[in-house]
Write a protein that binds this DNA or RNA. Sequence first.
DNA 1: CACTAAATGGGCGATATGTCCACTTTTGCG
DNA 2: CGCAAAAGTGGACATATCGCCCATTTAGTG
Lengths: 203, 203
Amino acid sequence: MSSEVAPPRVSVERPRERADAARNRARVLAAAEKVFAEAGGADGVTMEEIARAAGVGRATLYRRYPDTTSIAQALLDEHESEIQAGILSGPPPLGMGAPPHERLAAFYRALVGLLERHLHLVLGAETGQARYRTGVYAFWRRHVEVLLEQAQAPKELADTLMAPLAPEVYRYQRQVRGLTPEQVAANLEYLSRRVLAGSPAER
Amino acid sequence: MSSEVAPPRVSVERPRERADAARNRARVLAAAEKVFAEAGGADGVTMEEIARAAGVGRATLYRRYPDTTSIAQALLDEHESEIQAGILSGPPPLGMGAPPHERLAAFYRALVGLLERHLHLVLGAETGQARYRTGVYAFWRRHVEVLLEQAQAPKELADTLMAPLAPEVYRYQRQVRGLTPEQVAANLEYLSRRVLAGSPAER
DNA sequence: CACTAAATGGGCGATATGTCCACTTTTGCG
DNA sequence: CGCAAAAGTGGACATATCGCCCATTTAGTG
């Protein structure tokens, strides 16, 4: 990040959000939450539909969000931040202090919980390519990378170990294969142990 | 598969494809191949665009394919069939005869090869949800399931072990993380050994 | 209380979709 | 060899969404 001549004022001098803007922001988010839940993802959800449900014009939506995925992303941010905080400064096994394979298992459990509670939002925000463009993916990825290093396993496995957390994979396991959230979490815990626990990698 | 009253004629009595239909089918597939390659996936590819590139009307496209993903799927079928044949009746380690973890590694290698050569088609055909609706996914899945059983590992891991083969994951590793196909394959081989080789699962 | 700037929402042109139907080509048959 | 039925084709049409523009409204400020 580069900074030009720093403005003399404190911080970035954001003009403060107007009252009606804040009100509409809240309306939009509440309406979008409902719309995504009903659609079960982002499939048929359009900007038009969210605008109608929120009782605002389409241009009001476009002012803040370029597309439906960024609205879902905004709704998710809050929940994802909680997990980030748990990783950075929470108690073990999610936070520091537990052995790598237990921390990975805890991380898996936390994200399975998120997927279970907000699958429609994650499908709306991180489907397909979009997943890898969100800032939060980089965070998850880095965390897994560190755990791999601590366990003396190749850190290039990070994306491989993240792949089962793609929302489409979770949806398929839950709705088509009929697994319970606990079963999914147990499988991932098994994976954690197999890959990170025991003898370090010989290769 | 169930059969009603079998028709007296040999086979299903398909009226045989007309010459102009066959010609246009070939044109469409050739044009679609090119269009997908240029777009690098299915992102901005429309039925209109493929029709224009093939020099046929849109209705001609819709007669055979309901959407762009099914066109990409048709183009992929051939290549995927080769791998299927290799699994069912080819030599080890892809075919029968090798230990499970080696067969899984060989399977991973075969699919990495497919992804490397035809990523744009796989992105066009199996992006997001569509991946789990293709017939071929069920085949891959079942194959991995059998290998898991043979290695006395929980067969519910099948989808988890398939997840890193999603085209978006491969694209990200190759184009964003800068891994080579060999590195991706090596990582997956490591995963195969860790999960399937050695002591059976205690749980 | 008036004034400025942010915020709003309806409307517009462009593009894609999926279906329909009149016309053309191929094929089977007398 | 020619003809009729059937299969195939392609352009047109109605509909929907997108992304943007701009006249109007509304909130905050001196």
